[in-house]
Design a protein around this nucleic acid. Sequence first.
DNA 1: GTCCGGGCTCAGAGTCGGCTCAGAGTCCGC
DNA 2: GCGGACTCTGAGCCGACTCTGAGCCCGGAC
Lengths: 226, 226
Amino acid sequence: MTRVLVVDDDAQILRALRINLAARGYQVLTAVDGTAALTAAADAPPDVVVLDLGLPDLDGTEVIAGLRGWTQVPIIVLSARTDSHDKVDALDAGADDYVTKPFGMAELLARLRAAVRRASVGQVDGDPVVVTATFTVDLAAKRVRRGDAEVHLTPTEWGLLEQLVRNPGRLVGQKQLLREVWGPAYTRESNYLRVYLAQLRRKLELDPAHPRHLITEPGMGYRFEP
Amino acid sequence: MTRVLVVDDDAQILRALRINLAARGYQVLTAVDGTAALTAAADAPPDVVVLDLGLPDLDGTEVIAGLRGWTQVPIIVLSARTDSHDKVDALDAGADDYVTKPFGMAELLARLRAAVRRASVGQVDGDPVVVTATFTVDLAAKRVRRGDAEVHLTPTEWGLLEQLVRNPGRLVGQKQLLREVWGPAYTRESNYLRVYLAQLRRKLELDPAHPRHLITEPGMGYRFEP
DNA sequence: GTCCGGGCTCAGAGTCGGCTCAGAGTCCGC
DNA sequence: GCGGACTCTGAGCCGACTCTGAGCCCGGAC
């Protein structure tokens, strides 16, 4: 469960955030001033901090600095100040995001999700890959593996596969494929597609005669089925 | 140098951003529509993307999804829409931040700094020394050892090796290598690559004719295999 | 049943990209 | 001004990739 530390001296806002966050399955911790926030965070490190800038005891940037001294937890700043100077200060002090009051709850929640997602992807280091039952495609590294073995693809084969994999489950038209891989002058050479799709299937499919992931849609185009 | 890809169909904004970013030491790449943005990013991966939502060809969330399919690069969305619904959609699609037009340049720059800082903390991992079976590369000290002996590299050789070693296991395109080592005017001189890769292999590989770490991907680029 | 169009497979020809080597040009330090 | 290192260029060779054409299969139309 994701733990959110909400820091605000306004009981109204605290209440509203507590209810909304709890309803969405977050575990909510609260603090009403800067020192309480710092001790609470040190006590039980949260996954994300929502921090109001107008605290009674400490300046907002001090709280941010206090947290940043030892943790990279995402910090979303709330503030009534719309002055760009305040925003710049808070962000440069180490905040991740800055939302001005009055704020929409939907937007705040979306920014919260974005911050948490970002923090969590940073932990797993691997490249994002598309996986099927028989092969895996690493779009960033431009690599394809089938089981343990690396599969070598030619530029054309890779271009074709990339187009299909970038639209998982969706039908990609013949013209579109031809345009993206061969260029706009080749949109009628649909036989190229047949030849190279056959090669891809031979390299990637378990049973090339009955493909399960690189599907032909007769007369229309092709589809990659994850 | 931090590379920023700015995507906007408004020439005014493109110009303003280019000037402001370049003045602060960023390297600026631009694209005027979604497909150009996706190919530009695949061609030369930027460190951060500034993306306008109102593009002529693709929907903003499609561009975000297209990037998120293979990279975790920070995406800052620009938009004239203030509707919270749009913000939620963009953030949930994978954007990192959402700035509404008209925006203050100081604020945008601060959010940009925040996004880049965040992305860079995860990367610092470990020592800047890359080790393979036959040689070791110390990126910080700019030294290469092969067994006990120090190997001397010329500036060009080093630039090439550095690019490859900084992307271990990943394919680095010919254009990208040429741009990074020789400059943007040389992106077609792929014979340079052959000559210098051959030299590197002669200096570093056990069997230069059958390289195990500096791999050619015909028609696409080269790959460093740790 | 026959015809026809779209799709699959296979094999061969031509081209293109990649490797190697050697030599000329250029830049820098002494 | 000289020497040496570095960078660039060109030629020959080779292998791989791309394209093309022919034959075959399948399903639908007549």
